[in-house]
Amino acid sequence: MKKCLLMMFFAGSVFVFAGCYKPHDKRVSVAAGVRSDTIENNIITRPFIGAYSLLAGEGIDIKDVRSWRNTAGIMEVQVSGHNRAVYTKQFEYRVEWLNDKGMRIEAQQTVWLRVSAKAMSDFSFTATAPSRDAVDFKINTRKAKG
């Protein structure tokens, strides 16, 4: 009987705390603790969701990669994604630019650069090619250290 009451209290608490959340414009990401609670993000459920996220190894998803040429005729690329984890995820990326023969263009700017993606939020980064010769690119990522 006690167990049953405890379960009912737990379930009730989740609905009480999570009851006020209303969906908003997807372009605005409101962080946990700022917005109203959801069932996934509630003072009672948060530790379980956090543990699940960690166990499931949740990370970033790439949602969109688009490229264009700027006014100087140089190629630029924007990578957009979403961090599914419940903690800030830092990673590094390096863009290698390729010419029309598929050869890598040597450039000082081809180095590992860091991105910090906030928990359960969208992120994006942009890169600019070293010259007009660049027609394609490859992007590598790795875990950020230190």
Partner: peptide, 15 residues
């Protein structure tokens, strides 16, 4: 490397 890369990309992107 990081500072130079960000500077170069900003400069080339600015046109």
């Amino acid at each position: 490397d990081q500072a130079a890369s960000e500077m170069i990309q900003s400069l080339l992107s600015s046109g």
